[in-house]
């Protein structure tokens, strides 16, 4: 275990790889039963993109997906993050809680994949609830099976990223299987958990009308889905791939044009989704 560090770091756009031993992720999170400690990449205090109102966004490290367009490849490995205690995170959060309550915002945990550190993130969510804050998780859903009902009880809103409903495309984009994500979405629908579906629009990767149609049809009947948010791909993370000497397959991919974005939004709407 590395030494306990102070929770300090910049925005999601800062590269943090200095503490990046190339450790296998899965071996470590099995020990994480108490969740008193965990790994965090960074946090931001003023996001309006990650849930309702003004959000404090905590980025945890560790992710099992390897999305070709990932803008935070420096969060893939658990130990890319800073090792901190949940209490430190909550103390920090407490300094913002009154303001965030007044602003009608809350805490969003993103990553990485927050569910890699289930006990740790649950502890933080529970602490945030005690402060009267709205809570949200941004997840790929890949590990959704591991999030039991008591975990979901401390999360008010799920921001679920679905890249594709097509197993081949999903695998091509993320190098993983889509089934767990779809299963998780269905479970959320069955228990009526408020959910926003987030779809990253990457020209040449996810923009095929059939791909969009597949997700739209899958999501449209789900009454728990409050929004489908189309998120345009951007190149803000490109420098990280370069700095980390990784092969970046989206180096030449452009951001979607406004026309393309509108087409996709309209496609979701046509299927009956509330999209933006």
């Amino acid at each position: 275990m590395s030494d306990l560090q102070a929770l300090e770091s910049g925005s999601r756009h800062d590269l943090r790889v200095e503490r990046s031993p190339d450790a296998p992720d899965e071996a470590l999170f099995k020990d994480d039963s108490e969740g008193a400690f965990g790994y965090c990449h960074s946090y931001e205090t003023s996001s309006r993109y990650d849930g309702p109102g003004l959000r404090i966004v905590l980025f945890t490290s560790g992710c099992l997906l390897r999305c070709a367009y990932c803008h935070n490849p420096d969060t893939w490995h658990l130990k890319d993050g800073t090792y901190v205690s949940a209490q430190q995170v909550l103390d920090r959060l407490a300094g913002f809680a009154p303001a965030i309550r007044d602003l009608g915002g809350g805490l969003t945990i993103s990553g990485g994949e927050p569910m890699v550190q289930l006990a740790f993130t649950k502890r933080i969510f529970a602490g945030a609830k005690k402060m009267g804050l709205h809570t949200a998780i941004e997840t790929s859903g890949f590990m959704g099976d591991r999030a039991d009902d008591s975990y979901l009880s401390v999360v008010d809103l799920i921001l679920l990223d679905i890249k594709s409903s097509n197993p081949d495309i999903y695998h091509k984009v993320t190098s993983r299987d889509v089934a767990p994500t779809l299963r998780f979405a269905e479970r959320l629908a069955s228990i009526g958990k408020p959910t926003w579906i987030r779809f990253t629009l990457v020209p040449g990767w996810t923009d095929d009308p059939a791909n969009v149609e597949g997700i739209a049809k899958f999501v449209a009947p789900m009454k728990n889905v409050e929004w489908v948010e189309v998120q345009p791909f951007h190149q803000l993370g490109a420098f990280k791939w370069k700095a980390m000497n990784l092969e970046y397959k989206c180096a030449d991919t452009t951001s979607p044009t406004p026309e393309l974005k509108n087409r996709v939004i309209e496609q979701f709407r046509a299927a009956g989704c509330r999209a933006r």
Partner: peptide, 10 residues
């Protein structure tokens, strides 16, 4: 002040 305006303001 890299954590957003809220942190900076506070």
């Amino acid at each position: 002040d890299s954590h957003g305006w809220l942190a900076s303001c506070l």
